[in-house]
Design a protein around this nucleic acid. Structure first.
Length: 129
DNA sequence: GCCATGACGTTCC
DNA sequence: GGGAACGCCATGG
């Protein structure tokens, strides 16, 4: 297994309870800025009995990104709620409050709120016949 | 080795 | 606020 993955998993393990981190931040802490997609890929390869708290990783909008993959989105939401993470009415997490590490999301651009629609756009583009 | 794909992100329109 | 395009890195065909 590549060191990148180990670093990614290590970073995810460092995420404390009651806190969440974004793919981009995890990638940056793992030493590969911009490799957010790779982080998701690495997490998708995790076994069911892993000790890596993958559920504490969300996208830049503070939302769950597992909607279409399978029903894990429900599990992730439940796990986060169990740890005390509160979801905003829109279904997003306040990264300024629950984001880890603290301060990494204070200067977050307003583009974060649009990230969700961007994902959907991508999917639609791929589904287009 | 090239092309397509994906638990993503940032920028531009 | 929504939609589309480009970039990013690793994997699989």
């Amino acid at each position: 297994m590549n060191p990148f993955y180990r670093r990614i998993y290590r970073v995810v393990r460092h995420i404390p309870k009651h806190r969440v981190a974004t793919y981009g931040v995890v990638a940056r802490l793992a030493g590969r800025p911009g490799a957010a997609r790779t982080v998701g890929w690495a997490l998708s390869a995790l076994p069911d009995d892993t000790d890596v708290p993958w559920w504490r990783v969300v996208n830049a909008a503070g939302r769950i990104s597992l909607s279409s993959h399978n029903h894990s989105d429900v599990v992730q939401r439940a796990l986060l709620l169990r740890e005390g993470v509160r979801f905003a009415p829109g279904g997003a997490i306040a990264l300024s409050e629950f984001g880890w590490p603290s301060g990494a999301y204070e200067a977050a651009p307003a583009a974060q709120t649009r990230a969700a629609s961007l994902r959907r756009s991508r999917r639609l583009k791929g589904l287009r016949t």
